[in-house]
C-alpha cells in the first residue's frame, strides 16, 4: 500500500498522564482518513506529532517513506480544532501572511487567495477586519489558509464544529474535491455521520490506545450482526410465524415513510438469506429487502465501551 504517513509505536507522556501509548497509524495516499475517538483520547496530540509541532517520546513517523522532518511541514495543511485569527488584521492581509509562512511568494499567494475567495464567495471580505467576521466566516478564511498552498496532506481537526449545515456542506464538498485532485485528508472528529460520508478508512483511539482501524466498508461488514431490514405490506405476526426458526430473531420496527410495515430480521448466517426471503414471500407482500449494516456510531460506541470495560 502506498502510504503518505506511517506512524509506528508512538508514545507521548505529559506530567500527569500518558497521551499516546504505542499508537500506530498508516494513512493511504489519496484517501480520506478518519481519526476517531472520544474527547481526551489523544487525537490532537497525535495530529501535533504528525505536524512536527511536538515530538513523540518514542516511536517514528514516516512521511512519504522518509522520516518526518520540519521541512515537510510545507507539504502539510493543518486546520487545528481550536483556531483563531489575529483580530486587528484585515482578512486579506492576514491570509497573505499565513500563505507566505507556508512558503508562497507574495504575488502567487495573492492570486490564489483571490481565486479561493471567489470560490467560497467571500471576495467582499478582503478588506474587512477579522473582528467584524462571524465565527463561521472566520472558519472559511481559516479553511482557505489551510489548503491554499496545495499541500499533499491535509489535516482537519474537528473541521465541522461551529459550522452551520450549509457551510458544513460546502466544506464537505471542498474536502472531497481536494481528495479528487490528489490530496490525502486526515480528519479527526466525533461526528460519525460525516465519517460515513467522507472517510475511506479510520483509526479509533481511546484512552491513548489505538483500538480499531481499517476501511470503513470492511469495518461495517465486520461489525455486522447479519441483520436485514424487510419492508412489506401485511401482518407482522404472519411474517414472524412464516419465518419461524429460520432466523435468529424477528422484530417489528416503525413503518417507513411510504407506510410500509418494517421488520428487522437477524439471521443465523448470511447464507440463510435466500431461504428467509422465500419464506417471507409466501406470507406477506414483500416491498423491499436490504442489509442493515451497523452505523459508525454503533461501532464507535460498542468498541469504546468494550475497550473501557476491558481495562477495568
Amino acid at each position: 500500500m502506498d502510504s503518505i504517513i506511517k506512524a509506528e509505536h508512538i508514545t507521548k507522556a505529559f506530567t500527569n498522564h500518558v497521551a499516546l501509548d504505542d499508537v500506530s497509524l498508516e494513512v493511504p495516499r489519496g484517501k480520506v482518513y478518519g481519526l476517531l475517538g472520544p474527547n481526551g483520547a489523544g487525537k490532537t496530540t497525535l495530529i501535533r506529532i504528525i505536524n512536527h509541532i511536538t515530538a513523540p517520546d518514542s516511536g517514528s513517523v514516516m512521511f512519504n517513506g522518509r522520516p518526518l522532518t520540519a521541512a515537510d511541514v510545507v507539504n502539510i495543511g493543518y486546520l487545528p480544532e481550536e483556531r483563531g485569527l489575529y483580530k486587528k488584521m484585515k482578512v486579506g492581509e492576514q491570509a497573505l501572511f499565513f500563505a507566505r509562512l507556508k512558503g508562497l511568494g507574495r504575488q502567487e499567494a495573492e492570486r490564489s487567495l483571490r481565486q479561493w475567495f471567489e470560490r467560497l464567495e467571500i471576495s467582499g471580505w478582503w478588506n474587512k477586519k477579522v473582528e467584524e467576521l462571524s465565527k463561521g466566516m472566520a472558519q472559511k478564511v481559516q479553511f482557505i489558509v489551510t489548503v491554499l498552498h496545495k499541500p499533499e496532506l491535509l489535516i482537519f481537526d474537528e473541521p465541522f464544529s461551529g459550522f452551520d449545515p450549509i457551510n458544513a456542506n460546502v466544506l464537505k464538498r471542498e474536502i472531497l474535491k481536494l481528495r479528487d485532485e490528489g490530496a490525502t485528508v486526515i480528519f479527526s472528529t466525533h461526528n460519525m455521520s460525516s465519517v460515513e460520508e467522507l472517510c475511506d478508512s479510520i483509526t479509533l483511539i481511546n484512552k491513548s490506545h489505538d483500538i480499531l482501524s481499517g476501511k470503513v466498508s470492511d469495518l461495517r461488514r465486520r461489525f455486522s450482526d447479519n441483520s436485514m431490514q424487510m419492508r412489506f405490506a401485511g401482518d407482522f405476526q404472519t411474517l414472524r410465524a412464516a419465518i419461524g426458526d429460520a432466523a435468529a430473531s424477528v422484530e417489528q420496527t416503525p413503518p417507513d415513510r411510504d407506510g410500509n410495515s418494517c421488520a428487522r430480521i437477524r439471521l443465523h448466517d448470511m447464507a440463510d438469506m435466500r431461504q428467509v426471503i422465500s419464506l417471507a414471500n409466501n406470507a406477506v407482500d414483500l416491498r423491499g429487502f436490504s442489509e442493515l449494516l451497523p452505523t459508525m456510531d454503533d461501532i464507535f460506541i460498542r468498541t469504546v465501551e468494550a475497550s473501557n470495560s476491558n481495562q477495568q
Binding site: I53, V74, P80, R83, G84, F98, L101
Partner: peptide
Amino acid sequence: EEKNNRVLEIVVSSVKP
C-alpha cells in the same frame, strides 16, 4: 493574546514555535 484567541495554533502549524 495569541494563545487566548487560538491564532497561535494556526501559526505553529506553519512555523516552529
